[in-house]
Simulated scan of single mutants.
Amino acid sequence: MNDPLQALLQLAQLNADYTAAIDAQDWERWIDFFVDDCTYKVQPRENHERGFPLCTLALISKGMLRDRAYGIKETLFHDPYYQRHVVSLPRILRVDGDLIEAETNYAVFRTKLSQETTVFNVGRYLDRVRVTPEGLKFEARVCVYDTEMIPNSLIYPI
């Protein structure tokens, strides 16, 4: 990908489509944003900055994403809630052939039924995105969240 403006527009669209799928709880569509040999992690900022590998959630293949989606739909019991993502424009860090590395800030709001909306998670996506014949796909997405704690448990992807 040689055109920086085109790369920026495509990354922005990828993030918009990704967050729309999660906000709509379309887990099958969420899986399709990744290549087969992928990494998806949710990690506290402190661990990331110190180089510690401990993550709140670490999925290291598309098969593990499928397993997580199945768990969300079929086996996890929790108070129902809605998520709404707000993301910044991506900042392209590096382009190397068909690989794009980018950083994008995000905020996730959570609304439980009959309760006020709260800020659930805020941080940044650190992405390695691969240009494929099907369009841009995440090779790696690390969600580095700013707080040291998240409320209750992490059910839905960030």
Rank of each mutant, 00 (worst) to 15 (best):
Y70G: 12
F120H: 03
D32P: 10
L89M: 12
V119T: 09
D96C: 10
A21L: 05
Q25G: 08
F52C: 04
D98K: 01
L5F: 10
K73I: 15
Q6W: 08
R130V: 11
Y156E: 05
V95W: 00
D96N: 10
V86W: 09
T132D: 07
L126T: 08
L113E: 06
P151Q: 11
A58Y: 05
F52R: 10
H78T: 14
E101D: 07
K73Y: 14
D26W: 07
D26V: 12
E74M: 14
F77W: 14
L126E: 06
G135D: 09
L5T: 04
T132A: 08
I150A: 05
F52L: 11
L59E: 06
V87P: 02
E139T: 03
H85S: 08
S61C: 12
A69E: 11
H48S: 03
E74F: 13
G97K: 04
R68E: 13
R130M: 14
G71S: 15
T147G: 13
L9W: 04
Y70M: 12
M1Q: 05
T75F: 14
P80N: 11
L14T: 01
P4A: 08
V86T: 13
R29N: 06
H78A: 15
Q13L: 06
L57E: 04
T132H: 10
Q10R: 06
K112D: 13
P90K: 00
R94S: 11
N47I: 03
H48R: 06
W30D: 01
A12K: 07
L65W: 02
W30C: 02
A107F: 05
A102E: 00
G123L: 02
V119N: 12
Q6S: 11
V131H: 04
C38Q: 02
A69W: 08
Q43C: 01
R29V: 05
P133V: 10
K73Q: 14
E116S: 11
T147S: 14
T104N: 01
P44H: 01
V122S: 01
D127Y: 03
L8I: 04
D146V: 11
Q115T: 07
C143F: 03
D67P: 12
L126G: 05
D32R: 13
C55N: 04
Y18W: 10
L76T: 12
V35D: 04
M149T: 13
I155T: 09
R50S: 05
T104G: 00
N152I: 12
H85D: 07
D79M: 07
V142S: 08
R29I: 03
L113R: 06
S114K: 14
F120W: 05
V42R: 00
I100C: 01
K137Q: 15
T104W: 00
P53D: 08
Y125L: 00
T19M: 09
A7C: 05
T132G: 12
E74S: 15
P157T: 11
A16Q: 13
L136G: 04
N15C: 11
